[in-house]
């Protein structure tokens, strides 16, 4: 029984995380071709990524984030979600500090009553949009007609198998096609429209501004707790681990040895300052929780001023 509360504290810095996994997953990207800046959009104070290219680039930089939108393919389920991708505070800071991303503010012209010149711009955009819709309808009706024709040909071809090939059926086919050409109407309601996920660029792109990474939100009011969280996050990332949030596991981060799509998390990281007094019950509670979900609990304490992060794991001693 490991139920006895004789937990053994093994303070071995880096014992579990000493060697980074083989699949380094892009911890350092100096050799990588320079990627265009990832566009971060704020919704309130939350950082969101909207475009697939940005989400991908972030993943390549080892930032997993969490998808929070409804999935277009099956919007009414919670198992798999779609864009946008929400970034945690540490993820956002890492992307900004490594100069892979920039925060973009939306044009605030939605609320502003438009001055004259902007009204003209808007007018042009509406015309552009309507023209686009007209063109889309025309192209789609041609495509629909072609599809119908080929379906007809296939059906006739199938029917022909049983008969002798003669001229009458061929004439019949061409006759049918002609009738189809004249009578075919592609209804307006059948046209397929796109509901863009990311800002389409039609309306407000002109007002989109790029912020310098130094002007990121909340950079001035960082408390020591979030600072130590970031230190731990950055250190784990540099060692090649993938990290997601671990609120449900009672810790700060869930640490994966590889891409979370293919691998289980190994560690629950709990950030504790080096000099922090920790009640034993808390330590035991988090260790008990970790062993219940078959993960190792890591107490992570960043050292002062660029010193390495100390990792401490908890293990039930096995002595009864």
């Amino acid at each position: 029984m490991d139920a006895s509360p004789t937990a053994e504290l093994t303070t071995t810095p880096g014992q579990y995380v000493g060697e980074p996994p083989q699949d380094g997953g892009g911890g350092d990207s100096t050799s990588r071709p320079p990627h265009p800046l990832i566009g971060i959009h704020l919704c309130g104070s939350t950082a969101l990524l909207w475009r697939t290219a940005d989400v991908r680039a972030a993943r390549e930089a080892g930032v997993v984030g969490s998808l929070v939108g409804a999935l277009p393919r099956q919007p009414r389920q919670n198992g798999r979600l779609g864009r946008p991708l929400q970034l945690g505070r540490e993820e956002l800071r890492l992307l900004l500090e490594t100069r892979r991303a920039s925060v973009r503010l939306p044009g605030d012209d939605l609320e502003r009553s438009a001055p004259n010149s902007e009204g003209e711009v808007q007018q042009a955009q509406v015309e552009c949009y309507e023209e686009e819709q007209r063109r889309s309808f025309e192209v789609q009706s041609i495509l629909a007609l072609e599809e119908r024709k080929s379906a007809l040909l296939r059906a006739m071809g199938g029917a022909k198998q049983g008969y002798h090939r003669n001229h009458t059926t061929d004439r019949g086919v061409s006759g049918h096609l002609e009738v189809l050409d004249q009578s075919f109407i592609f209804p307006r309601s059948a046209v397929a429209v796109q509901l863009s996920t990311a800002r389409a660029g039609l309306s407000h792109c002109s007002d989109e501004r790029t912020l310098l990474s130094s002007a990121q939100p909340g950079s001035s009011l960082r408390d020591p707790r979030s600072e130590s969280r970031f230190q731990v996050f950055r250190d784990l990332r540099q060692r090649g681990y993938y990290i997601t949030s671990a609120g449900k596991f009672g810790g700060d981060f869930l640490v994966y040895p590889g891409d979370p799509l293919r691998f289980h998390a190994h560690f629950i990281a709990v950030c504790v300052a080096l000099d922090e007094q920790l009640p034993l019950v808390d330590v035991l509670a988090v260790a008990r929780l970790g062993s219940n979900v078959k993960k190792t609990v890591l107490l992570c304490s960043p050292g002062p001023r660029a010193a390495p992060v100390h990792y401490t794991s908890l293990q039930w001693s096995g002595m009864v």
Binding site: T52, L71, P72, R188, A190, V193, G258, D259
Partner: peptide, 21 residues
């Protein structure tokens, strides 16, 4: 891993397309 990622990006990149009606 590559297969999973490909599938994942296919899914994530998909745009909503609906009939106007």
């Amino acid at each position: 891993l590559q297969n999973s990622l490909d599938e994942h990006w296919d899914l994530v990149s998909e745009e909503r397309v609906e009939r106007l009606g």
